[in-house]
Design a binder for these strands. Structure first.
Lengths: 197, 197
DNA sequence: GCGAGTGATGTCATTAACTGACATCACCAA
DNA sequence: TTGGTGATGTCAGTTAATGACATCACTCGC
């Protein structure tokens, strides 16, 4: 009797289907490319069916982008906790600082593989832009709620997301050792210097 | 003998297949929605085949976004013509001013229909973001070529694209009468005021 | 314990986006 | 005249995505 069939006697399904699909997909995409990998292959390798894949992820690309809600909260929680009247620049600083915690060093190898997959596929870059745009919209809303007027609110949100994006790309760059928070702080300071110059 | 068969005797194909597909697609999308319209329907309504549609447009969404090259040139030509040493802000001002010419009042109704279609479909918003991102990348390159250092180059490109996007949305807003150039100038001034404050 | 629900999964059928290979045929240039 | 070219058509195939219905371990109230 195999280990798998033993487990199968204990539970109807193996737990963690979603995570298994994500890990399997990442592996297959890295090995054979995004386009060359079919959803059927991913599902089969994860010992599930294609239909189950699409129950967990709205489309094939989404398997690389799940967890959007958590991602947004990372940035917005520090802003929610800031006192009223905090200036936009300080809100961005806190937001980036808080989000930095989501990118511990252990994640860097994973992030690099993921980024290299996304980098080879325009369709995936589109999705990434959409996710960043969603973050931008959310930040803009929070700023406006705090009586920061347009166009300052949108521009501040834009700047915040840009700083994050630039920092993230540096974080996963070859040889980079510094933490996400350190890099983001440096980028933010550079922007501040730019504006005040 | 029909008009069509007369023309058919004179030419193997009706000219302007691409434009016909674009106009037909816009019409059908507006009437029945993007998802509800199939490529086969568009092609048939334009008296062409599905295969021909995909020869002109890489995918179904692209029929609403063709002409990317011309669009980019609109923004970059004024920058190419500016003298060396022109500051980033002035480059953006010229770029927006030049691009404004691409949005004459006659285009507003078309732009409104198009925008309302895009607004209802996340997949189309993704594509639009990708196009704007391409513009941002191109502007960033031009700025860096002019010895504007990072992160100023990327931030300036970002700001320019944001101003354009905000201006465009205002241009197609209900009741708006001003020209694209006027609106863009106002938005740019607002941003400048913000930075210098 | 036991029977009714619940939830994650499987099965099956179908649609529609997209692609490759090859055919057609007016036009044009040598 | 003839041979090449380019835009289109035809056809077959793959795969992403979705709806409808079945299954069955688990759980909760009794």
């Amino acid at each position: 009797m195999t280990v798998i069939s033993k487990i199968a006697r204990m539970a109807r399904w193996q737990p963690g289907a979603r995570e298994r699909l994500q890990a399997t997909a990442l592996q297959l995409f890295a090995d054979h490319g995004f386009e060359q990998t079919t959803v059927a292959q991913i599902a089969h390798a994860a010992e599930l069916t294609e239909r189950t894949f699409f129950r967990h992820f709205a489309d094939k690309r989404e398997v690389l982008f799940a967890g959007q809600e958590d991602f947004l909260d990372l940035f917005t929680d520090p802003i929610d906790e800031a006192p009223a009247g905090t200036p936009a620049y300080e809100l961005i600083r806190r937001s980036l600082d808080g989000a930095g915690g989501f990118f511990p060093d252990e994640r860097r190898p994973f992030a690099r593989v993921r980024a290299s997959i996304i980098g080879t596929e325009p369709a995936l870059q589109e999705r990434e832009l959409a996710k960043l745009a969603a973050l931008k919209v959310r930040l803009g809303e929070l700023f406006r709620e705090r009586a920061i007027e347009e166009p300052a609110a949108t521009l501040a949100a834009e700047a915040g997301v840009t700083i994050f994006h630039l920092s993230f790309q540096q974080w996963i760059a070859e040889g980079e050792q510094r933490s996400m928070s350190e890099i983001a702080r440096e980028r933010l300071d550079a922007m501040a210097a730019l504006v005040s110059a």
